[in-house]
Amino acid sequence: MASKNGDGEPLDYRFSLANERTFLAWIRTALGLLAGGVAVQALAEQFAATGVRRVLAAACVSLAVAIAAVAHRQWRRVEAAMRRGDQLPESAMVPVLAIGVTGVALAAGTAVLVS
Rank of each mutant, 00 (worst) to 15 (best):
K4V: 11
K4G: 10
N5E: 08
N5F: 03
N5P: 01
N5A: 05
G6Y: 14
G6N: 05
D7N: 12
D7Y: 15
D7I: 12
G8Q: 07
G8P: 02
G8H: 05
E9N: 10
E9T: 14
E9K: 14
P10Y: 09
L11C: 02
L11V: 12
D12Y: 07
D12E: 13
D12L: 03
Y13I: 07
R14H: 15
R14G: 05
F15V: 07
F15C: 04
F15G: 08
F15H: 12
F15A: 11
S16A: 00
S16R: 06
S16M: 06
S16V: 03
L17H: 14
L17F: 14
L17Y: 15
A18I: 05
A18N: 13
A18W: 08
N19R: 01
E20F: 12
R21G: 08
T22Y: 09
T22Q: 13
T22D: 10
A25D: 05
A25R: 06
A25H: 02
A25M: 03
W26A: 05
W26F: 14
I27F: 00
I27R: 03
R28E: 03
T29I: 07
T29H: 00
T29F: 04
T29R: 00
T29S: 01
A30N: 05
L31E: 11
L31K: 13
L31P: 04
G32K: 00
L33W: 01
L34S: 08
L34R: 15
L34C: 05
A35R: 13
A35W: 15
G36E: 00
G36D: 04
G36H: 09
G37R: 00
G37N: 01
G37S: 04
V38P: 01
A39P: 01
A39W: 10
A39D: 09
V40M: 06
V40T: 06
V40F: 02
Q41Y: 13
Q41K: 12
L43F: 10
L43P: 08
L43A: 10
L43C: 10
A44N: 15
A44V: 12
E45M: 07
E45L: 14
E45S: 12
Q46R: 10
F47Y: 07
A48V: 05
A49Q: 00
T50G: 13
G51I: 01
G51Y: 07
V52E: 08
V52R: 10
R53M: 00
R54K: 12
V55D: 15
V55L: 06
V55R: 05
V55Q: 02
A57G: 15
A58Q: 13
A58G: 02
A58M: 10
A58L: 02
C60L: 06
C60F: 06
V61N: 06
V61S: 08
V61I: 14
S62D: 08
L63K: 12
A64G: 07
V65P: 02
V65C: 04
A66F: 12
A66N: 11
A66C: 09
A66I: 10
A66H: 14
A66Q: 14
I67D: 08
I67T: 08
I67L: 03
A68D: 11
A69H: 15
V70I: 11
